[in-house]
């Protein structure tokens, strides 16, 4: 996603969402400005919860894991050398936390699926469109879900995703393409033909 497209994102209340944070704000946070750091974390938290939900976790688990990821970021931000690389670093921490959580629970990414019953919190936002996208995402591997999410929702480049997910850029490109096609196929099957 181009930079202009990223910055045009407007949140549900119509306010400009300052994400990703500017390099100046990241630098200030890294250098000890706790107020700026708090604001960045506050803005990043819902994105993390959404990412984990999109990866297949239930809301409560996603919320808890996002909280842990924030704590990891507070500890490790001073080590971030290039403030410009913040966003890729942010998702790297998120992804690593996700993987370590799976290991802790003795699960693999292949095993992880959405819950057998819809998460009660989904009822708050559930529309036919959402239920279809949720069902379609279930058909993807966790890795493909995350690649697709980071590429299409968060707008990271293939290179950024590759660096953060420890994959070759080509592999990311292929995974993203495969995920998009799979999503489109599932969509086609799930949507009733208007004719």
């Amino acid at each position: 996603m181009p930079e202009s497209k990223r910055q045009s994102r407007i949140d549900s209340s119509g306010l400009f969402r300052a994400w990703p944070p500017s390099t100046e704000r990241v630098t200030a946070a890294r250098d000890g400005d706790r107020i700026v750091l708090g604001e960045i974390l506050e803005q990043g938290f819902p994105k993390l919860v959404a990412f984990y939900r999109g990866s297949g976790l239930r809301h409560a688990d996603a919320d808890e894991l996002a909280s842990e990821a924030l704590e990891g970021m507070v500890r490790n931000l001073p080590k971030l050398r290039e403030a410009a690389a913040f966003e890729a670093w942010f998702w790297s921490v998120a992804r690593n936390r996700f993987r370590s959580q799976l290991r802790k629970k003795g699960r693999t990414e292949r095993e992880l699926e959405y819950g057998p019953v819809p998460d009660p919190s989904d009822l708050l936002i559930e529309t036919e469109e959402h239920s279809i996208i949720r069902e379609a995402m279930k058909q993807l591997t966790v890795r493909d879900r995350q690649v697709l999410w980071l590429r299409e929702v968060e707008g990271l480049t293939h290179d950024e995703i590759a660096g953060r997910m420890k994959m070759a850029t080509g592999a990311v490109r292929v995974a993203a393409l495969r995920a998009r096609r799979r999503l489109a196929d599932v969509y086609e099957g799930l949507h009733p033909d208007p004719d």
């Binding site: 819902p46 469109e129 959402h130 299409e152 999503l183 489109a184 599932v186 969509y187």
Partner: peptide, 19 residues
């Protein structure tokens, strides 16, 4: 026509807004 990527983004925004 349904665009799954657009739907995915809207779904992501809904999940974020849920927090």
């Amino acid at each position: 026509a349904h665009d799954p990527i657009s739907d995915l983004r809207r779904y992501a925004a809904a999940l974020e807004a849920q927090v």
